[in-house]
């Protein structure tokens, strides 16, 4: 118990002192995971909306594939991205392995299926509600797509947060493709793993608490923003 309370004190101390090392790590975590969730959103939402709107051959297969990919362990994604980005791999010429870019790519791949699968759960009932009306208005697919996203924006925020949560909490992929390089590719989770392996459990726990506090802050921000939007007029 005293270990935990000590860690908590340590965490607060680190945060309030604006420890530059810590903030560097926090900033990179956010930069990587926010970029990844943005890419995953731009990629995933149109796919989800298309799956909800259109009934094309192979529709069922795509949905099964998406659900399966959602269960993909981060290390496997990490391994795939590692093999792709390694100098000996097909994308080796870009020299992206062991860079923040590689971590963004890996996390994007990791959370796109989540955005698609959860987005689908938002879009399917919306389309059931609006589909006929849109057909009567004779609006274009593009217009329909944007309208669905707009109508589902509050639920999509939750989807988005789920994706972000998975990205920022993930370690397997970033460790493998980022390499946990000090001052360069070290993020919260890899730093926690490192401190744990060094036996600095207190520091590791403090980092863990920082991660949780950050997640809390993001969620409060997002939900209050959503409430602000939702209130009539």
């Amino acid at each position: 118990m005293s270990d935990l309370s000590q860690s908590f004190g340590h965490a607060l101390n680190l945060l309030l002192r604006f420890d530059s090392n810590l903030w560097e790590i926090v900033a990179l975590s956010f930069r990587v995971s926010l970029s990844a969730v943005m890419i995953a959103t731009v990629l995933g939402l149109p796919i989800a909306a298309a799956l909800a709107i259109k009934n094309f051959p192979g529709h069922g297969a795509v949905r099964i594939l998406v659900d399966t990919l959602m269960a993909m362990p981060p290390v496997v994604i990490g391994l795939v991205v590692y093999l792709l980005l390694s100098r000996a791999g097909p994308l080796g010429i870009f020299g992206l392995l062991y860079t923040p870019s590689a971590m963004i790519i890996a996390q994007s791949l990791l959370i796109t299926p989540i955005i698609v699968a959860l987005g689908l759960q938002v879009f399917v009932p919306l389309w059931a509600k609006f589909g006929d009306q849109f057909r009567l208005f004779n609006t274009t697919t593009r217009q329909n797509l944007f309208t669905l996203v707009h109508e589902g924006r509050h639920q999509l925020l939750t989807v988005w947060l789920a994706g972000f949560g998975r990205a920022i909490a993930e370690i397997g992929a970033v460790m493998m493709v980022g390499g946990n390089i000090d001052h360069y590719t070290r993020v919260m989770t890899t730093a926690i793993a490192l401190e744990t392996s060094k036996g600095n459990l207190e520091m590791a726990m403090a980092l863990g608490l920082v991660l949780m506090l950050m997640a809390l802050a993001i969620n409060i921000l997002a939900h209050s923003f959503s409430r602000l939007q939702q209130s009539p007029n």
Binding site: D132, Q133, L136, F137, N138, T139, T140, T141, Q143
Partner: peptide, 11 residues
Amino acid sequence: RGDLPPYTLVF
């Protein structure tokens, strides 16, 4: 697609 339709339905 995209034109105003000649008829519509109020649900």
